[in-house]
């Protein structure tokens, strides 16, 4: 399986993602934002970080970079594109995913482990995952998912929510919402479910000695689903 991780100026989780993808068997290539062509890829990842210093709006500048036109075309042709954290922000700014990520409700930068409830397993990213909740890490200032009333209706009707912030048992309520996101949304799909954006970082949970193992479950499952 071939993957590509795009590095934007200010990306800082691109190498972690490279390590994670390679650990679980992807042949990964690092792609610079100024490149225009994507190599043949089964998965394209937009990593976390602070592309362009979060100037103007998080992800807004990166969404207009040269490589993004190829990423958009790849996604529109059914290619699998995953955006983590700043990558999620870039995906909404590029129009590949609906909505936007606002400043966290209590204006704090949040950096901690959280649980997410997997909403839908009828997709390539979460199909066959046995657990219903996963422990991931979040580190963001703008993760407060917001969209218009019409958009949330559409998201619900198409079952486009990928992950909800929850507790370890899968309870989703205000107490398990770290940043004020509508309906505790931590990750969403586009309507064809080939594009996934999520605030949590699975690549930070791939080493049981350092963090946890739920990222390993995610990547191992993902490569098997793509095969």
């Amino acid at each position: 399986m071939n993957s590509s991780v795009i590095t934007f100026p200010g990306s800082n989780c691109d190498r972690d993602m490279n390590v994670a993808l390679k650990k679980f068997g992807f042949k990964n290539k690092m792609i610079w934002h100024n490149d225009t062509e994507l190599p043949k890829s089964d998965l394209v990842v937009l990593p976390g970080g602070f592309s362009y210093g979060d100037y103007l709006r998080c992800g807004s500048m990166a969404s207009k970079s040269k490589i993004m036109q190829s990423v958009i075309n790849f996604a529109k042709g059914g290619g699998k594109v995953m955006g983590i954290c700043n990558g999620f922000q870039i995906l909404v700014e590029s129009g590949l995913l609906p909505g936007v990520l606002l400043r966290n409700k209590y204006l704090e930068f949040i950096c901690k482990n959280i649980f997410v409830k997997v909403n839908d397993k009828e997709n390539l990213y979460f199909k066959n995952i046995k657990k219903n909740t996963l422990e991931f890490h979040i580190a963001h200032n703008e993760g407060n998912y917001f969209c218009s009333k019409e958009q949330i209706k559409e998201i619900d009707n198409n079952n486009q929510v990928a992950l909800y912030y929850s507790d370890a048992n899968g309870t989703v309520n205000e107490n398990t919402n770290p940043n004020g996101s509508i309906k505790n949304i931590a990750g969403i799909f586009n309507n064809k479910k080939n594009v996934l954006g999520m605030m949590p970082h699975p690549e930070r949970m791939i080493d049981p000695d350092l963090s946890g193992e739920d990222g390993s479950i995610f990547f191992e499952n993902l490569i098997n689903n793509l095969k």
């Binding site: 103007l56 709006r57 207009k64 700014e93 909505g99 936007v100 606002l102 917001f146 969209c147 958009q151």
Partner: peptide
């Protein structure tokens, strides 16, 4: 429309 504002918000 294309960059300076995000019309969702």
């Amino acid at each position: 429309n294309k960059l300076l504002a995000n019309l969702v918000i």
